[in-house]
Design a protein around this nucleic acid. Structure first.
Length: 498
RNA sequence: GCCCUUGUAGCUCAAUCGGCAGAGCAACUGACUCUUAAUCAGUAGGUUGAAGGUUCAAGUCCUUCUGGGAGCACCA
């Protein structure tokens, strides 16, 4: 891409001329510090009910969203992060210099306003402007005032346009912040401490996913961006940090769709001397607290208006993996031949695969999408869970649960494996039918060394924060809850050109 | 990666069978002191994503490239 500045279009040219006019009037088109302004949402209720009655003097800072003229009157719609309010500027109430300044205003400009709250004759809450301060001249023509901006590509590449001009976008992102605050608060209340562990890993472990690779120049080594938080947090458990969590970005070099972004936010939580059952209780606490943080009710809408809902009232059902499998497939998951036949009838590749991998493929095909939830699926086949402690009375079953809501996996938790010898063995054992890069079993010798020192028996829990926010804000796409989802860069030269 | 679909003015969208590229909003000039998708009169605004091809004639048909979206695959 060229580094030379873009030639201004006709709109930018006109606005630059207005900026110059503002300078000639003795003002700064890009503004200065503007103290003691009030939130529009706080100011609106102060307006007198009776039309024409003079209310309090207020000061706001806002963006100009709309404009109407009626002779020597100017009505503007102004908006800040909290709400909208109408501004009224009258030729008769302003100095000559201020009136000239009004004529240099455009849609999209940021202004500081001092004036009195008063209702217009039609009853609209308004600020009758006494002093106008230009805080920033906008050089860009805003989208159409009625239909707004709809081009998804533009809205994602220029998310600020989306945030300014599309109602609900900023609100949803602020809800995301509230949800994350709530998660931290719940954990703080139970004496968990937040940790920050490395993003750059020499072994990308803790999950089954393709990593991004990068390179450190001074050490001249290949590094991976982390795909999970697990192995470092467990090292902290070894070190005596008994209740620990991290909220952080993880990176997986895989496809992009409505529920997957290459970088996404996970929380992983570890509790010494707990197990997967204590983590189920914690999951319920975290999610229900988050619901309370953004809603007055435990039943949240899902889908189009009136189409559906999610009832987060706890406790949530806990269903055994094997039972759900049997109900859906009509055979026991230990019946290897029957499982294979059903899998083949569903078009699932079975050749060379470990029986438990086939069972899991079938489970995903038959069961997952139908789990409306919230529901805990518990007790997974051990062979697909290499980091999990087995049940004491059945070594084929792992103490693991996944939480499903609306067919989406929201949380995943284990009773953590703390036997270093067994862990080492599981790292070495590739499940048949899995490519090495698809496998979770990547040898991490430093992690084994840590386990030998001794890690308490523990519960571990991971929650996909983006998915939690999606479910709580009725968002069908992960792009609705991430400010800047990954897009292909603009303006790359076509292959073979240049 | 596969397949389908889409890209027209700053924005939202038209353009019939291949036949003069258009509207609304926004902008600009003017009128109007209570509007709120304000109204009224006028003006200007285009490399139809890019390159090539077919044709007397291409926004429209064909090829390649490119950005976006939906689905599939992978995955959480």
């Amino acid at each position: 891409m060229s580094n030379s500045p873009q030639k201004p279009d006709r709109f930018e040219q006109a606005r630059l001329e207005k900026a110059e006019k503002i300078r000639e009037l003795g003002f700064d088109p890009y503004g200065q510090r503007f103290d003691n302004h009030q939130a529009i949402a706080a100011v609106r209720p102060l307006c007198p009910e009776e039309a024409g009655a003079e209310g309090e003097t207020v000061r706001i800072a806002a963006r100009i969203m709309g404009r109407r003229k009626a002779g020597k009157l100017r009505f503007f719609d102004a908006k800040d992060a909290t709400g909208r309010i109408q501004l009224l500027m009258s030729r008769g109430d302003m100095t000559e210099q201020q009136w000239e300044l009004v004529s240099a205003l455009d849609l999209g400009d940021l202004v500081g306003i001092d004036g009195k709250l008063k209702r217009t004759q039609s009853g609209e809450v308004s600020i009758f402007v006494e002093e106008l301060t230009v805080l920033c001249k906008s050089l860009v023509q805003p989208p159409e005032k009625f239909h707004g901006a709809k081009d998804i590509e533009m809205l994602l590449r220029q998310r600020y346009i989306d945030l300014i001009y599309n109602d609900g976008v900023l609100d949803r992102m602020l809800q995301r912040s509230k949800i994350i605050d709530s998660v931290r608060q719940t954990l703080r209340g139970q004496n968990y401490v937040e940790a920050e562990t490395p993003v750059l890993h020499s072994v990308a472990g803790g999950a089954a996913a393709r990593p991004f690779t990068t390179h450190h120049n001074a050490l001249d080594i290949e590094l991976y961006l982390r795909i999970a938080l697990e192995l470092h947090l467990k090292r902290l458990m070894v070190g005596g940090v008994e209740r620990v969590y991290e909220i952080g970005r993880v990176f997986r070099n895989e496809g992009i769709d409505a529920t997957h972004n290459p970088e996404f936010t996970m929380i992983e939580i570890y509790q010494a001397y707990g197990n997967y059952e204590t983590m189920m209780d914690l999951t319920e606490a975290i999610v229900t607290d988050a619901v309370k943080a953004i809603s007055d009710t435990m039943v949240l809408p899902w889908g189009e208006e009136g189409e559906g809902s999610i009832d987060f009232t706890s406790p949530w059902p806990r269903r055994k993996y094997a039972e759900l499998f049997q109900e859906a497939a009509g055979c026991a998951m230990s019946d290897t031949e029957a499982v294979k036949q059903i899998a083949q009838s569903k078009g699932i590749e079975t050749e060379g695969k470990h029986p438990d991998v086939i069972v899991n493929d079938l489970f995903e095909e038959l069961v997952e999408d139908s789990l409306e939830g919230p529901v805990f699926v518990i007790d997974y086949p051990a062979s697909i869970c290499p980091l999990t402690k087995r049940k004491q009375d059945d070594p084929n079953i792992a103490e693991r649960f996944e939480l499903y809501v609306k067919g989406m996996e929201l949380a995943n938790a284990y009773t953590e494996l703390n036997d270093p010898k067994l862990q080492e063995e599981l790292f070495l054992t590739q499940l048949e039918g899995q490519d090495e890069e698809d496998s979770m079993a990547k040898m991490d010798t430093d992690f084994i060394r840590a386990l030998k020192v001794g890690m308490p028996p523990s519960g571990g829990l991971g929650i996909g924060i983006d998915r939690l926010v999606m479910l709580l804000t009725n968002s069908r796409s992960i792009r609705d809850v991430i400010y800047f989802p990954l897009l292909r860069p603009e303006g790359m030269p076509a292959a073979g050109e240049e």
